[in-house]
């Protein structure tokens, strides 16, 4: 009886996932029915009734890749420092600090990014405005750092000590051990951290909306980091408040895409993580 009660509560999460999908889909359906694959074109023109969200999809991916270029080397470096060489006292201080970094609200990042970093880049590079992909990538990279660091740190901490001992006993230095044993052994956990970081970067809304400027255009040339642009998240956040009618339904389509992309990433990251635990716990 008690068992069933708790089971009921636990199924809530599953139920919510279904609900999210269903209700997003109900709201998105009119737009999908009306425009079909035109939704994936790159022309967004409200007066001509064209709602192609390709620029936003491209922007989401572009900005996430840029953020990863910033965050992955730094994040894995910092995680290696924390798990392998930081003395316990330092670690006890740094871990909570990194958690605090994750706790700063995204709207604050966005505000700071737009005002400080945006103006700084504007001055340095003589751009047309304060909004740019470059600024968004830097800030999003910063925002993805904590999650990458803490997950990669966990993954490296999970590598059994006797593997490291075996390497040291063969005359390897600590750094050789880290590079050739710990990191390869933890690689699936680390990749899962990177994927989660990318999910965070793709799903981030407020910061990217303020910094990127939410202009519906694809950067030209495609790697132009000084351009303004849009992402799926920013498109939704900006347009929801100002639109009505069919546009709302288009925005829900964007929402579904976002949800599916990030859900797939979560699942991949999940699988990678169970692989790591099985490798070290199931086997022995």
């Amino acid at each position: 009886m008690v068992h069933m009660t708790f089971f009921g509560i636990a199924t809530f999460s599953v139920l919510i996932i279904f609900f999210i999908f269903i209700f997003l889909f109900i709201e998105a359906y009119p737009a999908i029915e009306m425009f079909g694959t035109d939704l994936l074109s790159s022309e967004w023109n409200v007066s001509r009734n064209k709602f192609g969200i390709f620029p936003a999809i491209y922007g989401s991916v572009f900005v996430a890749i840029g953020a990863l270029i910033v965050a992955v080397p730094l994040g894995i470096g910092a995680a290696t420092y924390l798990s392998e060489i930081a003395p316990n006292r330092v670690r006890m201080v740094l871990k909570p600090l990194i958690e605090l970094l994750a706790g700063i609200p995204s709207i604050v990042y966005g505000f700071i990014g737009a005002i400080l970093l945006g103006r700084f880049l504007y001055d340095t590079f003589g751009m047309r405005g304060v909004n740019s992909f470059l600024a968004a990538m830097l800030i999003l990279g910063m925002m993805a750092l904590p999650i990458i660091i803490s997950m990669a740190d966990d993954a490296m901490k999970a590598v059994p000590k006797d593997l490291k001992d075996a390497s040291l006993a063969l005359g390897a230095t600590k750094w050789q051990t880290t590079r050739k044993v710990t990191i390869p052994a933890a690689i699936s956990g680390i990749s899962s951290a990177v994927i989660m970081g990318m999910g965070r970067a793709i799903g981030e809304t407020m910061a990217v909306m303020l910094i990127l400027g939410s202009v519906m255009r694809t950067p030209v040339p495609f790697f132009n980091v000084f351009s303004t642009g849009n992402t799926l998240t920013a498109l939704i956040a900006i347009q929801m408040g100002e639109s009505h009618g069919i546009i709302i339904n288009v925005l829900f389509t964007a929402g579904i895409m976002l949800f599916v992309i990030v859900a797939i990433m979560s699942i991949i990251s999940d699988i990678l993580q169970t692989r790591t635990t099985e490798k070290f716990e199931g086997k022995r």
Partner: peptide, 11 residues
């Protein structure tokens, strides 16, 4: 946990 907050908002 991974779902973007904007999707929560839409939902």
């Amino acid at each position: 946990q991974g779902t973007p907050s904007i999707v929560h908002g839409l939902f």
